[in-house]
Design a binder for these strands. Structure first.
Lengths: 203, 203, 203, 203
DNA sequence: CATGAATGAGATTTCATTCAT
DNA sequence: GATGAATGAAATCTCATTCAT
């Protein structure tokens, strides 16, 4: 006999929980946000949440996975529209610049940062972080740089891995300051400045 | 009744507690670290800790204040040794580069980052953050840049405030990634790259 | 509306549930075993289980009833093969001796013992226990002893009720220790010793 | 500086908790009795209980240890008053006979039995049970029997270990039935009968 | 001032039972 | 009848803070 509800139904419910959890975690932080907060915010019962995730931490990890994977995949796909290395780098800066004022994005940045701290203290999660930095983030930039070197667009002699690390550290650093200080931080101008600086250094 | 112990005794004890708290907060995070952890680590009794600080949060805030104030004061003092803007900027990068491998510094970065997140959620603390960004951090860089412009060393047309924001965002971003990923992150190379890139953009 | 499935189907399904519940209760204890354990073990859905039993406790009681009734009925029937009191007593000891190493039996003993504890705390169940001790257990032994006295096989002056109580207490005590300590307990030898001792005392 | 309260104070408090826990566990069973029950019964706060024991299970184990150790030690000491094997065995039966009607003892028996079931499911606890059976229980009886054989009081050819196992199985079996059925069970008569039977078999 | 036992609010998690499909 | 997702009461345990000694 077939299951009573469809897989799609369950996937949707899972996402729903994750979405509400993101908001709660962003608002109070992972530790301070309680399961009851998620219950209140999502109007999904406590028991139900625990049939989809076996612990609060699992929600956290699922949340980070989903956000990272989906956003990176979208990014990579969009990058195919550009066939010029500098344009690609420029495009990524622009994508982040466009996030200015988007509450959900700033929430994600906060939760992301907190997750980094959290994961850096847990051997298993730390490995996940390291792997992800490599797989999802660094490789994207390294590929672009190496491509740019072949076409002669990029002449920088610097180690592509180091450049990739720096690239994401800047994105993170700027995004983090912004999400903490909000309107006090001239986000768009800073991102623009960073873009020019980074691109200048590549040429 | 006259004070039973000297002010100096009290100050020393306070510092002691703060020092141990830093380690505990770095190791487990502010929320996860318990007063009992600090008790165990410092061998100072719970009751005693509560005579010096009226809550766990107060220890946290005192810790952030002391670290920021003392480190910035030292930095500013050291900067007077250089009378060239680029050299000053270069020097600050070098100061951070030198922290590579220093556990205490990485601990401080973690605690600092977590405090940012924490403070960004509390109106009062958030204001403190904003003020401090202005007073302790941005002004240092803005002063150097404006000085450099006067002497002609710096020709960049960019807004000094924006440059200052970017400067600290890079320092934070790089430092944070390093403290989370540790030996997996080529910290010194990245800082060096950042230094060259930033200085190039100023000229 | 006529019944959708046959009575026989229902009876079989009930037994099936009981059989799986026995194993789960034996493995973890009544309280610790969950309905989900029974679901997993029996592959019968939770909803289904609740159409046959209206609570977890009801499964427990049904389980005890069925096991007691069926095993005692079988025992009484088999006893008719012997027409000598001592032989009958001896036979019962042998029946228990034969259980050595039988997992299902040891499971039953554990569940049985736990049920005793459970029932002793509930007035209604306690009465059931008392009635059953009388109806199913004591009377069997009392009848044998009285028969034996008539034929002169048994000369003991002791109160048959007391002897019957002692008989079952020994069987229980030995079985319980065995099911808890398993291979560490020399079950067959102890049962044999008990048999000789008990029979000697009757003569 | 010395601890704020004496070791003796702490030991007394521990005992107090154990004493109240015994009553709660006896009344409802270990699983069904809650920490809140113990709180209500003892009027000691939940937090306090957890400073003396780190889990509900730890209370259980401490409870069993204390009861077993203290009662066995007392028994062994009292046995030295008798220098005749049969008298010693007789004395032990009498000790148990004297417990008739003592609520605390019946509570202990129930909790003891439940602990047996509980421990038989946990490898670590099971080993504790096996060791204790050997150390505290069997050895006492084996020593008496071997002594009795030397003096010629006991002529039974049976294995002393088997006799010891049977002895305690009878004590347990009778005690357990009694504590479950209470006034419905002719405890003193059954114990008396068991004593005569067991002693007869030794001679 | 120092100490650490005591407190209890509150957090996470479990699970028997219900009920819409 | 069968299914298993949903529910929420209740259980265990933690920990910041207090306060008597």
């Amino acid at each position: 006999m077939p299951p009573v509800v469809s897989d799609e139904y369950r996937a949707r419910k899972r996402s729903e929980i994750i979405e509400h959890a993101l908001i709660c975690f962003a608002e109070k932080g992972f530790q301070a946000a309680t399961i009851d907060d998620i219950v209140k915010h999502s109007k999904i019962s406590k028991g139900s949440i625990y049939t989809y995730f076996k612990s609060k931490e699992e929600i956290y990890i699922a949340l980070m996975n989903e956000k990272t994977v989906s956003s990176t995949e979208r990014l990579i796909e969009e990058l195919t529209k550009y066939d010029n290395a500098i344009e690609k780098i420029s495009f990524i800066f622009d994508v982040y610049k466009m996030q200015a004022g988007r509450g959900t994005w700033m929430d994600t940045v906060k939760v992301h940062t907190e997750f980094y701290l959290h994961a850096s203290r847990d051997p298993e999660l730390r490995q996940l972080l390291i792997d992800r930095a490599e797989t999802y983030y660094n490789s994207v930039i390294i590929n672009i740089i190496e491509e740019g070197k072949k076409t002669g667009e990029i002449t920088s002699k610097s180690n592509p891995d180091v450049l990739a690390r720096l690239f994401w550290s800047i994105i993170n650093g700027v995004g983090f300051q912004y999400s903490a200080l909000e309107e006090q931080y001239p986000y768009e101008e800073v991102i623009e400045e960073a873009k020019e600086m980074f691109i200048a250094s590549l040429k």
